[in-house]
Structures are given as structure tokens and as C-alpha cells.
Design a protein around this nucleic acid. Structure first.
Lengths: 189, 189
DNA sequence: TACTTTGTATACCGAGTGGTATAATACCCG
DNA sequence: CGGGTATTATACCACTCGGTATACAAAGTA
């Protein structure tokens, strides 16, 4: 029975997301999971390895969904809506993981956690950038800005998601509309 | 001679921003500063106190500038430009501090560092939200959205600033124009 | 000159860190 | 049943953590 593996993963995610990767010790994780250290090291090899598995478990399925959402069909608005939906679904199914990965991504560049998430973010950025690049065929004014749009789009989605997780915004169908609309047409319309 | 105080502050900022508050020990800070621990504890009382002073020294002057930039004169575009300028100037004068405060703000809600920055962000959010609220007098369509606009505006500014600090965007006069334009009118115009 | 205040170093504290050597248990497969 | 394999616990490692008691030196102040 490798039940303990899943329990450990859940406890690690909760603790990391609540108090930060560096601030949480392995002692604390195994205590929360009701096991002892060798169990953790048996499954994950190291504290770092544990974080890597946490990221894999949640990000890999998400990236498959994101890849589906970023296929360009000639309707950029539709794609953006699907992308936003993918992010919101991730946030709603596992809020703790969303908090964690955002915190990790914006942690210092030389820090260990940041180096672990970076490849995931790079892949996701590529998906978004490709979407905007393909869309320039139909929206000439966007030419040469696909990287920046990928960056700011993700930034705005994360702003919305974090505001929702912090209780400043209530989730609704219309929220994704508003988000896409604000990104597409700005605040004046 | 309280030279050592300033040296300690500089070293702490550099280390915190490079590797994270939790990952850096006081030992390391005093070693970098070329002093010993009692010196640090003489000036700052604790590691936490040290972070608080770092935030005060950089954020308080910034907030005064931000307060000036957020006074609404009937021209929202002008205000947004001035706000963006304030953030960019902060990022260019002390990039390490900008990285640090962004990382702190997005670190887990229950973590110590996050609780230390939160009041600063709350004040700054209030300044931005007030600007958007006053602007609704001239832009009725924005009514009831001032909090969200404050959130997303700050998010977009930070996206641009971080992209600049990471070398993905080169700073120029026109960049602030583009930033304000994207926020105001979206990506389609 | 005598006293206080400020600043700094030596040396130390208990607690906790990530990680492991060893061994016992439990399981599946022959 | 018997032998390997997977899983788990006890007990420990060297090291670092944030923080401090004590003492000493310099400088202002009476």
C-alpha cells in the first residue's frame, strides 16, 4: 500500500502553499502525514524531489489541457476564453497548488524553488506565445508583440485568479468574459 | 559611526532578493557585511525587524511619490503614466528591492514575510483604487470596478517591470506609453 | 576624572535542519 | 513454505538556525 505517498504529497502541498517551501521542514511534513522521515525519503529522495513530484502531478495534466486550449482556430477571443477557463479550473480544483506555483515563480531567480518551476513556466509561456503569434495572421497590429502579450495575458489571468482566491472577486461565468474583454479592449469600453 | 547599519541593510536586501527571506540566515548576512551577529541584533532586534526596516527605507519614500502620482486631475491617462513612471523608477533605482517586494507579496498568506509587506500593499492599493474611483466621474462605464482596476493595473505594471528586470523588455520612454495604452484600450488597437 | 551610552566581538544556547545507517516488518512470487 | 522486495520505524549524524549573556572599547558628558 503506497497510500502514504499520496498522503505525503497532499500534506506537502498544503504546508508549502500555506507557509512557503523554505519555511517548512521535512520533519513537519512527515508529522502532518503521520509517518516518519525514511518514508518520505524512500518515495521522493529529497525535499527538492518532493517539490518536483508535487509540480509534476498537478502541472503535467494542466499543460495537456492548456495545449488544447491554445490551438488557434481563427477565433482569438475563443482561445483566450478557453485558456482562462483552464487556469480557473486549476485554481478551483486545487487552490493550494495555484497559490504555491505563483509564489514559486515569483520567488528569487537564484532560489532553488524558482529553478524547479522555471521549466514548467517556460513551456506554458511558449504555448501562449505561439497562440498570439499565430493570431497575428488575422490581427496585423499585434505583430512582434506575441511574447509581451503572452506575458501580460498570463499576468492578468493570475491577477484575476489570485483576487478570486483571496475573496476579492467572486467566480462566475461572466468573470471570464470580463477578463477577456478587459485584456482585449481595455478599461474604456 | 553607524556605517555598519547601512552596510547590513544593503547586504540583507541583496541576499533576500537573490535567494529569499527564509533561505538566507542571519549568519550569512553578517558575514557578507563583515560584522558579527550582535551588531545586527543591536540595530534591528531580530531578522524580522531587519526586513521591516528594509521595507520602510525603500517603500515609504516611494509611497510619497505614488501619492503624488495618484492625484486625479481629470486626465486618467496622465495619472496612469505618472503611476507607471513611479514604479519603473523604483525598479531602476533598486532592482533588488523590486524583486524582493514582489516575491514577498506573492508568498503564502500565512508566511511571516507576507504579513510584513501586506500593510504596504494595502496602502498602495488604496491609492490606486481611489484614483480609479475618482475617475468614474468622467468615465461612467468604470463604475463599481475601481478595486478590480487597481488590482489589474498593478498586476500589469508588475508584469512589465519584471519582464524588464529579467531582460525580456528594454526600457524606453515609449514603453510606458505602450503599457498605459494596452491597459486602456486592449490588444486590438 | 568618573559615569553612562553606544557599538562591537567572543563564545555560547537549545532547537531544528536535511539526510541516513540499520533493522524490522509485510508483502508478493516461486 | 521460503526468498526476495518494498515499505516503514528507531536512532542517529553533522550542521545550521535565530538569538543572547558577557565583556570590552570608544566616545560623549558631568
Amino acid at each position: 500500500m503506497s497510500d502514504n505517498r499520496e498522503i505525503l504529497l497532499r500534506c506537502a502541498l498544503d504546508l508549502f502553499s500555506a507557509r512557503g517551501y523554505d519555511a517548512v521542514g521535512v520533519q513537519e511534513i512527515v508529522a502532518a502525514a503521520g509517518v516518519t522521515k525514511p518514508t518520505l525519503y524512500h518515495y521522493f529522495g529529497s525535499k527538492r524531489g518532493m517539490l518536483e513530484v508535487v509540480l509534476d502531478t498537478h502541472f503535467l495534466p494542466f499543460e495537456r489541457r492548456l495545449a488544447g486550449a491554445t490551438t488557434y482556430t481563427g477565433d482569438l477571443t475563443l482561445s483566450l476564453r478557453r485558456v482562462a477557463e483552464a487556469f480557473f479550473r486549476l485554481a478551483q480544483s486545487t487552490p493550494a497548488f495555484y497559490r504555491l506555483h505563483v509564489a514559486l515563480y515569483l520567488s528569487p531567480p537564484e532560489s532553488e524553488p524558482r529553478q524547479i518551476v522555471s521549466p514548467f513556466y517556460a513551456r506554458q509561456h511558449l504555448l501562449l506565445a505561439t497562440l498570439f503569434e499565430l493570431a497575428t495572421a488575422d490581427h496585423g497590429n499585434m505583430r512582434g508583440r506575441h511574447a509581451r502579450y503572452a506575458l501580460t495575458w498570463r499576468g492578468m489571468v493570475d491577477s484575476y485568479v489570485m483576487a478570486m482566491l483571496d475573496g476579492y472577486l467572486a467566480y462566475s461565468e461572466g468573470m471570464i468574459f470580463d477578463l477577456v474583454h478587459q485584456f482585449s479592449h481595455g478599461i474604456y469600453s
